[in-house]
Amino acid sequence: MTSTDLSGTAAIVIGGAGGLGEAVVRRLHEHGAAVVIADLDGDRARELADELLDSVVHIRTDVTDSDSVSAAIEAASRLGPLRSAVLAQGGWGVAERIVQRDGSPASLEGFTRTLDLYLTGTYNVLRLVSAHMATNDPDGDGERGAIVQTASIAGFEGQIGQSAYAAAKAGVIGLTLSGARDLATFGIRLNTIAPGTMQTAMMESVGEPALERFRANVPFPKRLGRTSEFADLALGMLTNHYLNGEVVRLDGAQRFTPR
Rank of each mutant, 00 (worst) to 15 (best):
A201F: 07
L119N: 02
L108A: 14
A95M: 06
D67W: 00
L52K: 08
F230I: 15
L87C: 03
A146V: 09
A95D: 10
G155V: 14
D62Q: 13
A146H: 08
G91M: 04
D139S: 07
V248G: 10
K222H: 13
R223C: 11
Y165H: 11
D50T: 15
G158V: 05
D62I: 13
N124H: 09
E30F: 08
T176N: 06
E246C: 10
N240V: 15
P219W: 12
E246K: 08
E51K: 12
Y165G: 06
I37C: 01
S7M: 03
E74W: 09
G32H: 01
G103Q: 02
A45V: 10
P138M: 04
G103W: 08
K222A: 10
A151G: 11
A164E: 00
G19A: 12
D67S: 15
T64M: 01
V129A: 04
T135L: 01
E22P: 10
A17N: 01
A234S: 12
G121K: 00
A168I: 09
P81I: 14
G15I: 05
G21E: 06
D251S: 06
Q162L: 07
Q162Y: 08
D251K: 06
G18W: 03
H31S: 12
R101N: 05
E208A: 14
T200E: 03
V247W: 03
V94F: 10
M1E: 06
L52E: 03
R181D: 07
E212Y: 00
L28F: 13
H132C: 05
S77N: 11
D251W: 03
A33I: 14
G245D: 03
G171R: 00
D5R: 11
G103V: 15
G42H: 06
T114I: 07
I12V: 15
R113W: 02
A167K: 01
A146I: 11
A85W: 11
D116P: 04
L233I: 15
D65E: 05
A11Q: 02
